[in-house]
Design a protein around this nucleic acid. Sequence first.
RNA 1: GGCGACGUGGCCGACUGGCUAGGCACGGGCCUGCAAAGCCCUUUAAUCGGGUUCGAUUCCCGACGUCGCCUCCA
Length: 451
Amino acid sequence: MFALYDTLTREVRPLEMREPGKLGMYLCGPTVYGPPHLGHGRATLVYDILRRYLEWRGIDVRLVSNITDIDDKIIERANRENRPWQDITHKCESVWFNAMGRLGVKRPTDVPHATDYVEQMVRMIGTLVERGAAYTTSDGVYLSVESVSDYGALAHQSLDDMLAGGGDREVLGAQEKRHSADFALWKFSKPGEPAWPSPWGDGRPGWHSECVVMSLELLGEEFDLHCGGADLRFPHHENERAQAVALGKQFARHWMHNGFVVDLEGEKMSKSLGNVTNLLDLLDQFDPRAYRMLLLQTHYRSPVKVGQDNIDASVKALSGLDSFVARSAGRNAPADADTMARFVQIMDNDLDTPNAMALVFDTVRRANIAIDAGDSAADALVGAVRKMCSALGLELGSTGEVATDARALADALDAARSAKDFARADALRAELQALGYVVETTKAGTSLRRA
RNA sequence: GGCGACGUGGCCGACUGGCUAGGCACGGGCCUGCAAAGCCCUUUAAUCGGGUUCGAUUCCCGACGUCGCCUCCA
């Protein structure tokens, strides 16, 4: 039974499915106004790993992940750069999916856009107003948090506790709000801003009503799992939940949050701190698989430090697995059953990927020993390594093709070596290395792979 | 001020009340024309102080330190 930590109950508990064998999960997607950063990369990778693993286990996963394509930040940028806001959202969305593709993240089964659900949001807000849970001010429509008896359930803080603190930040619309924690569901537009009609005045959606509307519509009431970064826990997810609760609906049954990406000093990467690192830079500079590798070796709830040293170590660990795959090519046998049983047991325990990777490396070592000893047990271990890596979304081996002229150089190198013309052999080897290949010269001949 | 998380070997990073996590680096060996690559080996670390226990890195209390949230960066 697959068990997962639930942010709401603060315990690892079985992930129940309304329909056994079918999981409906909602992942808060990006607001498209800029390039994806490392935090986005982590979240999508974590949930991609979860999704692939569950699918590998035979579960039919429906992953709904939204694109928030209307938001203050988008409008700000459009004004600043003096171009249509759709220009920005379309561009950013394509950059987003391109980056996700490079990370090996599968496209969600559903990618609903906020702008396609504005009418539904307006209807929902109307219901909230009718129920007395929302009210109008001069700048928009607000949800009354006092109408949600357990507001703060995800943050694990009561309303009083939250207000007791040193909230020294700006409080939007404070003068007219009934409670300073009340949040905007609808924001009236200023002239020239994108706007949709509503019974209260033209405007745009406020605090992520799209997530509420789309998750309930596509996955249904009381859907199985709601996911996102720990940074979304409060207020984003708390406010989503508040809207659904105020609506009288059952919302997500299980809440999952992944940990932060921190910088080298251990501080959270955040736009407000100005220390965000662009995901595209990471993808350009390193093997795109390295980030997945690093995250697999870190528990999803722990903070992860993304820096040169860490990534380097992951790249090298990956290279070790690649050479194992190369070395064991041609061995085809069903995966070792004991190893796979342990793998499942480990992964079912709150997605314990660090331990799963430890098992992978351990199995590699055992397989190598068996190969060297000519033991036939090797094949099943090789099969287990491949199967585990594939369940985790780690693609091994096929990193770059070997060009035919490089292959010719390698053959010339072999010829030089057998002729004991070592000066020429060394020159050829240097030439191949300069072309970016890892050159392995063995008795059986020279093998090449991309560095 | 309130709520919460965390402090592990050279670095990163897990699990765990007693039994070697793992990766990377360093070192040793095998292989090799020499290398590189590859393979194997490299057998005790847990901020501090109390407590519970036969036994604590693991549970409890306290101190110190780091970090996060406490309303629009998501």
